[in-house]
Nucleic acid binder design. Structure first.
Length: 292
DNA sequence: TCCATTTGACCTGC
DNA sequence: GCAGGTCAAATGGA
């Protein structure tokens, strides 16, 4: 699907954040493992930026769709395939209309599906090879979903994944695969249900949702004092905390967005707040990764 | 032995 | 003819 609607763009931003979160979790779970060239800081920053983007999109008033969100894919000034139509093999029109892209700091991208590599090619205009994948359930469920993955930047490394077609396979088969890597065998059941940054996982099992999606929300039962404490850790300023809470409670989305900031500015603001306070995981308390 | 990946050959659109 | 996309035999690991 082409990334036109705000919803789709938000989903893409969230997916990107989720992939970074998965890598960060793996790094935390397995600190001795080779985590690749991307630092934990960069991963955390990517998570924060992606979620901020998604929040900005979802909380923005509709203007023109293009104004609402700078597509993740466009961050690297990569030429849009729509802008310069491919003169190569024609992709089925119903499929191409569903294409979307995602950029990731490393090629291991757990997007909720199992993929089988079926080819690799050197691309003329790129120094890097492109890998071709199709859904592992291509035969079992006649699933026509495919994706291409290609390194588009070296430093920092950025891998572009382009998706084609729909998954017609049963998604429950694939959902489990998201969590295979980096999953602690001791708590794999919980891991398979939810990844959550913040407080004790056992605390609110009843609030778990299922399905591979990300819900970003404020908990109704977070008291004003608890929220004040969280923001105090971030801002180190009581007055700011007070302002934050007033904004937070009055915001329809339940999230703090500086009233004086535009969408992009708010994204930067939130990212900095979060990234600068990585030692305090409670500041992520309102972010849930869940299975519906 | 099975299965996923690799890789050269072939196919297709321009 | 070129270049990207796909196929399928070869290969290697579990």
């Amino acid at each position: 699907m082409e990334m036109n609607s705000p919803h789709e763009k938000a989903v893409q931003a969230i997916r990107y954040g989720l992939s970074c979160a998965m890598r960060l979790k793996m790094r935390i779970d397995h600190p001795m493992a080779d985590g690749g060239p991307v630092s934990s800081y960069d991963l955390a920053k990517s998570i924060a930026e992606s979620f901020s983007d998604a929040i900005s999109i979802l909380s923005a008033k509709p203007t023109t769709e293009d104004d609402q969100f700078s597509d993740i894919s466009s961050r690297d000034s990569f030429p849009s395939p729509q802008g310069s139509p491919s003169k190569k093999r024609k992709i089925d029109s119903t499929d191409s209309s569903e294409n979307w892209r995602d950029d990731s700091p490393d090629p291991i991208y757990y997007d909720g599906y199992l993929w089988r590599k079926y080819g690799q090619k050197s691309i003329k205009k790129s120094n890097h090879q492109r890998s071709y994948y199709r859904c592992s359930y291509n035969k079992d469920h006649n699933c026509g979903a495919r994706k291409h993955e290609q390194k588009i930047k070296d430093n920092p490394p950025v891998y572009r994944t382009t998706y084609f077609g729909h998954h017609t396979c049963k998604t429950e088969h694939n959902l489990d695969a998201i969590f295979i890597a980096g999953q602690d065998p001791v708590d794999d059941l919980k891991s398979a249900q939810m990844i959550r940054f913040g407080k004790d996982l056992n605390q609110e099992e009843g609030s778990y949702s299922k399905g591979f999606s990300l819900s970003v929300k404020s908990e109704e039962d977070i008291t004003r004092e608890q929220t004040m404490d969280q923001y105090r850790e971030i801002t180190s300023n009581d007055q700011d905390c007070q302002d934050v809470i007033e904004e937070d409670l009055s915001s329809p989305s339940g999230f703090y967005l500086p009233s004086s900031s535009s969408g992009s500015e708010s994204a930067d603001f939130n990212s900095d707040l979060l990234v600068d306070n990585l030692d305090s995981w409670d500041c992520y308390d309102q972010f849930y990764f869940g299975l519906h």
